[in-house]
Write a protein that binds this DNA or RNA. Sequence first.
DNA 1: TGTATTTTCATTGTCGACATAAAATATCTC
DNA 2: GAGATATTTTATGTCGACAATGAAAATACA
Lengths: 240, 240
Amino acid sequence: MSLEEPVSTQLPEGKRKRGQGVGAVFETLKHEILNLTLEPGSPIDEVKLAERFGISRTPIREAMVKLAGEGLVVTLPNRFTIVAPIDFANLPQFFDALSLMYRVTTRLAAVNRTEEELAAIWDLQHSYTQAVDAKDVPAMIEVNRNFHAAIAQAGKNRYYTDLFIRLLDEGRRLLRLYYSSYNDELPKIYLQEHEVMLAAIEAQDIEAADRIAQAHAEQIVLQIQSAMTADRRLNSDISL
Amino acid sequence: MSLEEPVSTQLPEGKRKRGQGVGAVFETLKHEILNLTLEPGSPIDEVKLAERFGISRTPIREAMVKLAGEGLVVTLPNRFTIVAPIDFANLPQFFDALSLMYRVTTRLAAVNRTEEELAAIWDLQHSYTQAVDAKDVPAMIEVNRNFHAAIAQAGKNRYYTDLFIRLLDEGRRLLRLYYSSYNDELPKIYLQEHEVMLAAIEAQDIEAADRIAQAHAEQIVLQIQSAMTADRRLNSDISL
DNA sequence: TGTATTTTCATTGTCGACATAAAATATCTC
DNA sequence: GAGATATTTTATGTCGACAATGAAAATACA
């Protein structure tokens, strides 16, 4: 199921300073969950994690609580903690919220962006171009996420940004699942849309920003949906 | 600063079962934070909490991590954990997000509500009426929150519901702060608007639901804003 | 042989103690 | 006496160990 070979034996990896343990575990696990290195629904062994990071179970557990708070793992009391399953039943709601956040954050960015933020987003756009040229799909997924996250942050509404980033991250797992059905055309369409979106933000044209954000969202939703229906095999594979 | 005398000595309160500790601490603290029983910005002493609940520090800390995940407390590494300050600077963003969530959840409720959910929401509306009649302000604040949360849940989009409940809870602290400026008129206006809102949801009239939700949001935002400007004294009181 | 009951076993949730970090206090130098 | 440095103090972050829990294995029973 996993797209990459699991990182099996990541030993103590050097002494960590006090208070760094939970953060490191949290970040590492988050990464592995979103990359599908850890299979959705698979159980997480606290003891193994403790050995792997060379720390005791206490900070591991605190990291688990944090991960549970972000919905990345699910804790079954007195039993296990499992990697959050991908909930296909809630996909329509996911798409709905994702679309709305695309629109709202892009609109706000058009209003509130500073020149510095604009430049930083352009940089990310260039990185995306490079990833497309290199046909580096994992990099494309990652940079795409950072691109939209940066736009949201330029909008400067913490509530929208938090939800949007959560949705984008959840979306990364879907994109990973279906990345096999990527063709060469699609990334270029995204690239163009990003270009138009950034132009609207630069020009502070709110309505244009809204329109392109909505179109972009629909594009992505359609893409994932068609990939899903084209590849039903995967659905039966995923533990729900 | 606190509106009620702090619950000082809540002793072990009976043996708890395994795994109930964190939940109880979390819920109790959450309540006390939202009721302003715990002053925003005030430090939280893990040891005292452990004594108060009659458990060790480990489950207390896990509860703190959960609270931090919901933004109810802020952890200063190696120093304290403090009750999340009320961030007056971000208030405009808060109002913006709150308004949008009012609209979106009410719209969705008009589409997706079942008869059972509708009946349950009507019950909450009746409870609200009773609270208004009894001039029981804390009950009004609590029931109002549950009323809108129930509407959101009837809309059946977890992403919106989660964000909205978080915003409503954060709003409870603001309402508590300014509840002194409540007059007798305002609750009745809210009551009427709730009535219209429910009627729109019952009739599944999406556009009407949207309109009244927007109006209701503006009403509340205006109310809080005018209370704030009328009572600046409080701002200097709050440790930021 | 199939079902109900007991026992074992693995893993969690919790505890008390210790080490460590940062602030508060005391001490020293000029 | 003022600033810099050393020391004490207080509360955190972490640890290893233990007990409770629920599932699986083993046993008893019809």
